[in-house]
């Protein structure tokens, strides 16, 4: 099992590397393989270097970061809630981050300086975490946590709709609509610099949750009797998820179904242990987001197909398939 597990991790890591390279080599600017590598590493050719270093490199790095954030937090939420249908958006962070971004777009703040939009989204995410902890209380039971998350999600989505509803400017409205679909196009190293600390910090926090999630397989009482501090475990997972999903939404918009589907795809392969699933799902999430981001560029190079649209289009049938399989298990 352990050898098999390291093989899976290595295979996933190799997939991420290949897709990362693929992401660097695909784009509307037709640049040869040799030229692009020369530009990337040695800075040969001014235009090509600009495209490689300022356009494709941040896009590929963000693909990895966003994918890791979604895959890892999805696996952690499923482990915490002991439910395969849990997903990172459940605690309301992504909807709140989206609301922050939408407000930045609507007020024109986003046009004023480059990082206004992601910063507003991060602020939205932060407010949602504080709200959820205030609502669920520090000892918050899992049920209360989920219900508070659903309530905050609904409120944030309603407020987002209200902004769209009252938007006097059709251009702002359409800009908001497109942003909400989720994309990695036209991002810069500034976005990478903004998201990376939160996502890396979230990954570090998740390492503290590792063992506790495994013990939770046997229920809360059994886990507590094995020495797991449930309150602290919940706080770690909620904070880590909020930091990662908040940052991912801030730089990429809403990218659905990755956090739900990737842990599922890998669960059986890693022997279903929630702890083993965390690193596998992080790598798997990165691979899926990178792959999807390559696909949107390849199948519709001139139509700006949004990444979030593609992941939802591919993800939802898979989700339905899961429900069908679960129905069979229950029956």
């Amino acid at each position: 099992m352990t050898r098999c597990y390291s093989l899976i991790l290595m295979a996933l890591f190799a997939a991420v590397l290949v897709l990362f390279a693929g992401s660097l080599l695909v784009g509307p600017a037709a640049i040869g393989l040799g030229d692009s590598l020369a530009a990337l590493f040695r800075g040969e050719g001014e235009m090509v270097t600009l495209v490689m270093r300022e356009v494709r490199l941040p896009r590929a790095i963000l693909g990895v970061l966003v994918g890791v954030a979604l895959g890892l937090s999805g696996a952690a939420m499923q482990g915490l809630l002991r439910n395969p249908l849990a997903e990172p958006g459940l605690i309301g962070t992504s909807a709140s981050a989206a609301l922050g971004a939408v407000l930045a777009l609507q007020t024109g703040l986003a046009a004023a300086f480059a990082l206004a939009l992601p910063l507003a989204a991060l602020l939205g995410a932060l407010i949602s975490v504080l709200l959820i902890l205030a609502l669920a209380g520090p000892r918050g039971a899992i049920q209360t946590l989920i219900l508070a998350g659903i309530g905050i999600s609904a409120l944030a989505s309603a407020l987002t709709s209200l902004v769209l509803n009252l938007s006097p400017n059709p251009f702002a409205a359409s800009e908001i609509m497109f942003w909400m679909m989720g994309s990695l196009a036209d991002r810069s190293m500034l976005h990478v610099g903004l998201a990376a600390p939160f996502i890396l910090g979230g990954m570090l926090m998740m390492t503290r949750a590792w063992r506790g999630l495994d013990a939770l397989t046997l229920g809360e009482d059994a886990a507590a009797s094995m020495g797991v501090d449930l309150m602290r475990l919940r706080l770690w997972v909620v904070f880590a998820t909020a930091a990662m999903v908040g940052a991912a939404t801030a730089v990429a918009g809403a990218i659905g179904f990755v956090g739900l589907v990737v842990p599922h795809l890998l669960r059986r392969a890693v022997g279903a242990s929630p702890a083993r699933l965390l690193p596998a799902s992080a790598l798997g999430g990165a691979a899926v987001v990178l792959a999807a981001d390559i696909v949107v560029r390849v199948i519709a190079p001139d139509r700006d197909l949004k990444l979030g649209v593609l992941t939802a289009l591919v993800g939802s049938p898979f989700f339905l398939h899961l429900i069908l399989r679960r129905r069979k298990d229950i029956a």
């Binding site: 397989t217 046997l218 229920g219 059994a222 022997g271």
Partner: peptide, 13 residues
């Protein structure tokens, strides 16, 4: 401790 609910959330070996 062996709780009464025989809960095993995931299909672990």
């Amino acid at each position: 401790f062996l709780p009464q609910e025989r809960e095993i959330a995931w299909p672990m070996p």
